[in-house]
Amino acid sequence: MAESTFRLRVKYQKAGRLRHLSHLEVVHSCGRAARRAGLPYAVTQGFSPHMKVAFGPALPVGTAGLGEYLDLWLSSYVPSGEAFEALKAASAPGLAPVQVKYVAEREPSLGAALTIAKYEVVMEGGEVLAEGLTSSFAAIIAEGVLAVDHKGKPKVFELASALPKEPDVCTIKERTTVGLAVRIGERGSLRPEALVKAALTRGALDGRIMSVTRTELLVEQDGSWRDPL
C-alpha cells in the first residue's frame, strides 16, 4: 500500500430488514456507500484497480450485527467526524456506520485481530425453556467437545477454546435470551444457533429461535477483551 494512505476503521450495523443480506451483498453495498459519500478512497494498484477496503468476519444471511467492522483506506485525510457524517448520509439506515476512527497502518488486520464474537439469541419460550437450556449448556460444556453438522459435514469444537465464556440465559415474559461469546479461530467459529440447537436436542426442549444478533466483535489482548476502536 502506498505510504500516503489513511486507514479509517468503520464500526457499522447490519440490522432490521437488512440482516437478510449476505456477506457479499454487505461488501458491495458498503463499497457503494463509500463512493456515494464522496470519500477519497484509495484504489489498489494492479490489473483490476478497485477500492482498498477490508472487512471483519462475515455474518450469515439472517443474522444481525450491531458492531461490525471494516477498514477503508483513504488517499487523503478527512476529519473522522466529517467522514462519519458523509458515510451516514450515504447509507441505508439498516446498514449504517455507528462510529469511525483512524487506526495505525501497523495494526493487525481485522481478520487477524477480531477473535471474540458476542451473540444474543432470542427464543420463543419462558422459564421452563430457560432452565432447561441452562442445564443443557452446563452438560455440554462439561463434556468438553461438541460435534455439529456444518453443511452436511461434521465439525468438532473444543469448547474450552471455542466457547470462552459460559452462556447467560435470561427470560422476560415468554422470551428467552441466550447471551454467549465464541472464539473465532482459523477454522471458523461455533455458530450460536448450532450450540442452542444442540442444547435443545439434549434437553428435549421446545423453543424456536426468533433472531440471532452479533452484538460485539472484540480483540483479545493479554487475557482481556477490548473494543477494536
Binding site: G16, R17, L18, H20, S22, E25, S29, A33, V61, A92
Partner: peptide
C-alpha cells in the same frame, strides 16, 4: 412476510430499503 423469509432462498429479493 418476514416470518416466511427464514425458510426461503435469497430473502434479499423481498426486503426493499435499497438506496
Amino acid at each position: 412476510i418476514e416470518p416466511l423469509l427464514t425458510g426461503i432462498e435469497r430473502p434479499v429479493r423481498y426486503i426493499n430499503s435499497e438506496w
